[in-house]
Nucleic acid binder design. Sequence first.
RNA 1: GGCCAGUUGGUGAAGUGGCUUAACACACUGCCCUUUCACGGCAGCAUUCACGAGUUCGAAUCUCGUACUGGUCACCA
Length: 550
Amino acid sequence: MTNKDLADVIFPHITKTVADYEAMYPQRNLKEGACVTRFAPSPTGFMHLGGFFQAIIDKLIVQNRDGIFYLRNEDTDQKREVEGATDLIMSTLNHYDILPNEYQFKEKIVGNYGPYIQSERKEIYQTFIKHFIEIGRAYPCFATKEELEELRSAQEKIKARTGYYGRYARYRNLPIEEAIKKIEAGESYVIRFKSMGDFEKKFKFMDEVRGLLYLPENDEDFVIMKSEGGLPTYHFAHLVDDVLMRTTHVVRGEEWLSSVPKHVELFETFGYPIPKYIHTPLIVKKEENSVRKLSKRKDPEATMQYYEENGYPKEAVIEYLMTIINSNYEQWHTENPDKKFLDFQFDPKKMSATGGALFDMDKLNNISKNSISKMTKEELLEESYAWASKYNEQLKEIIDQDRNYYRAILNIERESSKPRKDITTYSDILNNIWYMYDDLFEKEETYEFMKITDKEEIKKITKTYMDKYFSVEDDKETWFAKIKSLCDALGYASNMKEYKQNPEAYKGNVTDISTVLRVALTKKAQTPDLYEIMQILGKDKMIERFEKLS
RNA sequence: GGCCAGUUGGUGAAGUGGCUUAACACACUGCCCUUUCACGGCAGCAUUCACGAGUUCGAAUCUCGUACUGGUCACCA
């Protein structure tokens, strides 16, 4: 009995060879220096911020060098699989313009290196596993859960390193005859890799972010194929897929760093070149006195859905993540305002290796605010309308009522060198403009009058203003000159310096008068430019609102 | 506990032996501008790079030790 017999008993249906697959998926014909990257999420029904972060890097590496960025669906854990997960991933990548070059989606395969769904690659994995068994580098293991738990507690008791390795690898040297007998008797088993490594020895490993590392060799006989379903574990799928799909750069979270010895031994056993690894910092959150990974259960901001729903412009989300990816990005972007994020030259060496970047909502909000302030009125109209159509019916209705009116409101103090920055997200817009709409204006009950609260005085100010000083034709200078005249006429100081020198001589100053007009028209003490608001409101509406006060 | 990584202001960080009396951005504070707010401008915010020792004429930058933080040790990825 030989290993070959064992392999045939386990995989009687596998007829192809490793060489067949190597031929089917030949070396890619790429330009000099072009890279192949992948985004390989497991379909859990969420698009995690951390995964998205990696997808940006994947895209960045490939961009401008005619490389290939592909999406691979890692669905080997059927227990966790969620229906429609790929839809969500694709739509998120699409929303942010980082679509892959190759993918498999809705029965459609784009690219010659598929299938890109792991559960459809079972035969391929099994071919490789079969080969491993034949060459004596993999074997069936019949250890039960209980057996493994016992092993673990025994190891803990004598303070040995836990795990299935060396002399603890109970089924490693099981005679082939016995193994076959057990299999034929229908016993449950997994396939384990037979490691030849020595934990006491170190090897050199080049991490693209951290530089040269010395890691201990792997000596664990880890599982490469699960008992149910015959699907591989991550480690083995990583080997097979990234070899056959000809991946050159693996971008993944730094939680994988400690599995590197396993992967290196796997690649070396086959004699395949090891891809370059970019282990990215995790995005973490502060809690009490510790930090932890963003969790989709506890932190809504951990999923990409959050940013879409709350109306963050996509450029803002990208820009924020870019500042974490390479902190010189912000500077680069201010120096190259017309370039897109994909033009940026990503350098893994410049990425922080600090083991965790604290998620900073303040920073994101600031970026978002700036990004909205730079939009033209037309852009903001389109973007906010698209957002409202999905997430805010009230805003959508308002826009539908009168697009021109809405556009005019958005344009207040916009499209200038120093635009306003008071809208953080699209979901913020309504809070900032409601008073321009009669029904919303009616609903608000309180007027935020400040210094002048006397009804008669307010009435006098508004009436005098409308009767003698207001004209729609005035430009801004004339308009303000008239406000000043109004001040003078009613005993308020039009000149702030004079007022400050002798406040007793006046009833108040131009600020007080402006505030009265502002609050009377908007109910709010703080609004954008009053002149523009009056222009948009128009004379009739102004009179109407002033009269409501009596 | 073993192994691995990391440790520069409240936050993201620049920095790779002298150009650093530690960049930039966010946050915060104060002042100025101003019809309110937002914007903008100016200034302040780490005498010091976790701590200790060593190498060196010279260290945030190199070496060692300690402490702390994080990751990992699954038939999850």
